[in-house]
């Protein structure tokens, strides 16, 4: 039994099937990531698990409570940070915090030890209106508000979208610290490079889960040889590589292109065939979560 248990959950909006029989389980104290692009169904899943909407089919439990029958108990136990900034822009930083504390019948003092590592960073601006905060500061205030009632489960919907690489890194450090305090965290992100910060991840696409495992487990599932290739003209190289025998896939990947070798691929023959390509380099390389995601999507 997990803290979050999801069984065959489905949800449609009119003709659009947003979530298609999704099942997974998250253990206590786990940091679980939903990795996927827009339209994967991540937000729908959050809205279902936080009891804001009801499923068409399937069932789920959060901290032992059924998402339909026990929705009131769930709301007391979970913290939710929606993708869109949803604090009151006209209230000050501290007024927002006090407001959320009052809603849950607690005081800021009672929970101060839990939020302190995050809240202290914005406390110097406690009288500033929330609408006037920078993106990174808004994010910290929203997280503080979501934690004010000491929830057992935290739902964070794309907390790092549109945030620069440095602030994103800081945010994941804060999550790691919360996990140490025993809070179960379900977090979604479109950035594949953040997957490694999670204990386990689910790769999501178009309402389905393509795979669930630890980040290393996901990568281990990539069972084909992978190469990094580069040349002077990278665009022309793509076309050339794709037309060679045994090349199952070839796509841009940072400074190199990644080449997935299928049956019949031979490195020496490949080099010989592309002997006229200026500055050709080919090296064996380790797959990443993103390579696996691409592979699962192409299936």
């Amino acid at each position: 039994m997990g803290v979050i248990d999801v069984h065959n959950l489905s949800k449609s909006y009119g003709k659009v099937l947003a979530l298609d029989r999704v099942s997974f389980s998250v253990g206590r104290g786990e940091l679980f990531g939903l990795i996927g692009p827009d339209g994967a169904g991540k937000t729908t899943l959050f809205r279902l698990l936080t009891t804001l909407i009801n499923p068409d089919d399937g069932c789920a439990e959060v901290d032992g409570c059924d998402i339909i029958k026990d929705y009131l108990s769930i709301r007391k136990r979970v913290g939710y940070m929606p993708a869109r900034f949803s604090l009151y822009p006209d209230l000050s930083v501290e007024e927002n915090l006090q407001f959320f504390a009052a809603l849950f019948g607690v005081t800021v003092e009672e929970s101060y030890d839990l939020i302190a590592p995050i809240y202290k960073q914005i406390e110097p601006f406690c009288t500033r209106r929330a609408g006037k905060l920078s993106g990174g500061m808004k994010q910290k205030l929203a997280l503080s508000c979501a934690l004010i009632h000491r929830p057992s489960v935290l739902f964070l919907d794309e907390p790092t979208t549109g945030v620069d690489a440095v602030s994103r890194n800081e945010f994941w450090d804060m999550l790691a610290a919360l996990k140490e305090r025993g809070i179960t965290i379900l977090v979604s992100t479109p950035y594949m490079d953040e997957a490694s910060r999670c204990d386990r991840i689910a790769l999501c696409s178009e309402g389905r889960i393509l795979g669930i495992d630890t980040p290393t487990g996901i990568v281990r599932g990539f069972d084909k040889p992978l190469y990094g290739i580069s040349a002077k003209n990278m665009f022309a190289l793509l076309e050339r590589a794709r037309s060679e025998e045994g090349v199952e896939d070839c796509y841009p990947f940072g400074e190199k292109h990644h080449l997935v070798a299928g049956e019949g691929f031979d490195e020496e023959r490949f080099k010989a065939a592309l002997a006229d390509v200026e500055c050709l380099e080919i090296v064996s390389t380790e797959p990443t979560i993103e390579d696996m995601f691409i592979k699962l999507m192409r299936r």
Binding site: G36, D38, T161, F235, Y251, P252, I294, M297
Partner: peptide, 23 residues
């Protein structure tokens, strides 16, 4: 930020268009 929130396959197709245009 033309590719925010876009899946990895589409993101790459998009970059290929950019390459082509630059070419």
């Amino acid at each position: 930020e033309p590719t925010g929130g876009v899946d990895p396959v589409t993101r790459r197709q998009f970059w290929e268009m950019i390459y082509e245009a630059a070419d």
